[in-house]
Design a protein around this nucleic acid. Structure first.
Lengths: 230, 230
DNA sequence: CAGCAGCTTCACGGCAGGTTCACGCGGCGC
DNA sequence: GCGCCGCGTGAACCTGCCGTGAAGCTGCTG
């Protein structure tokens, strides 16, 4: 499963650089620039780890660390400007999982994130499931089988590929081009609207009404996404 | 396209070695030995990235970084000689994209240059897969979803595009032309005032009062910007 | 080689939403 | 105090997107 990292710093450039490196390393990234936004971000997106600057407008990094540890059991890496601050912090034992002091190389930070996540993974048993469940919809990528409310549904290869791609990240929007690419290797030939036809067929088979979709939602002007009905 | 790298260091030998390695890697190389020459070099040759020593005669590396970022949006990799410099240095805070400490291997430097250029390429192309949080406002570019204080808000494609563009750099002001471009590829057709209409609709949906904006601030005579209320 | 299943394409109708316009208002300069 | 520039707003038009059924095409199977 794809991991989400929350990056909090009031310096726009730092956030930008770290976000880019973390994304390149395959992480989903959420950013915030002050304490309040960070709290909101955790509430909304439930990241797997947080990277906090200590000096922040509003609620500072130390207070955030306490709160995240207490309320969400969220691993935290603290970023600090001065080395002397670290000594103070270690004395305080705020409960951060690691510390990084500025200036740091982005690579170093990515390495720390990986290390902390690995450590956390090991303590709580990993469950690598190749089966995706969204509401009544079950997509088994190993068996290439799809069931709706326990009822098995026969999909063609292309149909399955499209559905599985979207189901892999429920809520995430996929453009027609992305879906075409997922289906046909990366051949950029083909009519984008072809996807419409396949979606229509998938919807028919899994019993989905475009007006009131239970699974495949149309995102006007953009593409489609799979999502459990709210 | 061939990329140009600016190498600045007062030590002739270092410049020579780095230049040789970078050229071998296929880059065009421009060199300078002090701050003033570096500024002139950037003006005359518009390099794609700069490699700056911190200790320089004349204008130092940190000041150069600030200036290049501000005036040319030029990616910078900082090189530092002594570990003690690190204490004084605020690192990425000044806007460098990466940082290398001596002694370094030339290969490592080349690798970093490649990495930064690749990253910049990608981020200028599309900024997908990120979530930006500003105060109570959460903009999820992967899901194309916006929430205000946890409450989901339905935006149309254009509305989302405008908001996401501005939220990507909180505090930064965007002209109507820039927003138009962000929305419609780069077609320069379209009425600038159209943006006003969309901003109005966005404000209505996220519950923002133009008189006392919580998120989208009007910058008279220029455009709009997204900013957390102070 | 015939038959078939599935992928792709096309044309068209309905409608969401994007664009434009006109008007009112408030701030700023003269 | 007056006029002008620029922003906010609501309504009307109209572009362009999506959903659909049917028909062509391709590759597999017997």
């Amino acid at each position: 499963m794809r991991r989400t990292v929350l990056v909090v710093d009031d310096n726009e450039k730092i956030v930008e650089v770290l976000a880019a490196y973390l994304e390149a390393a395959g992480y989903e990234v959420v950013t915030a620039h002050d304490g309040e936004a960070a709290i909101e971000a955790v509430r909304a997106r439930r990241p797997d780890i947080a990277l906090l600057d200590i000096m922040l407008p509003g609620v500072d990094g130390i207070e955030l660390t306490r709160r995240f540890q207490r309320d969400y059991d969220l691993p935290v890496i603290l970023v600090t400007a001065k080395t002397e601050e670290i000594d103070r912090l270690i004395g305080l034992e705020v409960g951060a999982d690691d510390y990084v002091s500025k200036p740091f190389s982005p690579r170093e930070v990515v390495a720390r994130v990986k290390a902390v996540l690995r450590r956390v993974d090991r303590s709580s048993a990993t469950s690598a499931g190749e089966t995706i469940v969204v509401g009544d919809l079950v997509v088994d990528t190993a068996r290439r089988e799809v069931t709706v409310a326990g009822e098995k549904v026969e999909l063609t290869r292309t149909e399955f590929e499209i559905l599985a791609t979207m189901a892999a990240h429920p809520g995430r929007v996929y453009s027609r081009l992305q879906l075409l690419e997922a289906v046909s290797g990366d051949a950029f030939e083909g009519y984008e609207r072809t996807i419409d036809a396949h979606v229509k067929n998938i919807r028919k088979k899994i019993g989905d009404d475009p007006k009131e979709p239970r699974y495949i939602r149309t995102v006007f002007g953009v593409g489609y996404k799979v999502e459990a009905p709210s």
